[in-house]
Nucleic acid binder design. Structure first.
Lengths: 121, 121
DNA sequence: CTAAATAGGACTATGTTAGTCCACATTCAA
DNA sequence: TTGAATGTGGACTAACATAGTCCTATTTAG
């Protein structure tokens, strides 16, 4: 919703406060999410009194996949598919359904890579 | 993995113990999952000393969607899309990205409905 | 009868994540 | 030069979801 808001605001720099007020999203929470998106290069920021955020790229150049990875850390259908699984499954090495699961993972990834922020504005 | 095991065992009735031993899955845990799949009509069961489980349908007639709904209760990309959201989002009614999110939900659903257990055996 | 199954309720431990709070750094403009 | 408006970042909490366990029925073939 925040990215949509920014997308629809032309080239203006947008403050967290403005989005928070306009969409009734708790300021502190949104603030954290904006920071995360900044750190993951989805947003650019300007500090200071007339600062704020803007998209780092055009909406159609930001895959949904990137946004979700940025915020959730990954886009995986199963824990065992994460790059660094918190808890590795005791049977990862001889999992009998590993390859079809990985195929499905790939298909989900592709879907989320085809979608971009412009599909949500 | 359990469904694959049963699928590959012909028409024999398969016990939880057999799968548990063969795949090194904790018996009690697998037991719960088998019960859930039974209750959700993915498996049929026979009680008693020569009892066990069998698929209620052919593998290609069981969509992955049904399996996941059975076990997780839903196949949703967001809490707000559940039939009975545990916590309803304060902005559900004026969510600015509701319709594209629902479209994506539909696409994910379709993918999981196209996949069946036979894709995993 | 009894052994081998499924059935099911209650419980625990662990991890995740939304959400909050506070102190700090940066910038602009009066 | 100062103060208000902004982003930055760390630490913390509360709530919830879920894997996993334990214990006690119930069913049924031999």
């Amino acid at each position: 919703m925040a990215l949509k808001y920014i997308s629809n605001s032309g080239d203006k720099v947008i403050t967290t406060r403005e989005i928070s007020d306009s969409k009734n999203i708790p300021y502190d929470l949104l603030s954290k999410i904006m920071q995360t998106m900044k750190n993951e290069n989805i947003l650019s920021s300007n500090q200071g009194s007339s600062g704020g955020y803007s998209l780092s790229k055009r909406p159609d150049e930001i895959p949904l996949y990137n946004l979700i990875s940025a915020i959730d850390g990954n886009v995986n259908i199963a824990e065992c598919l994460k790059e660094s699984p918190v808890k590795d499954c005791s049977m990862t090495d001889n999992c009998s359904i590993k390859s079809p699961v990985m195929l499905l993972q790939k298909e989900v990834e592709d879907l989320f890579k085809r979608k971009t922020i412009s599909d949500f504005v």
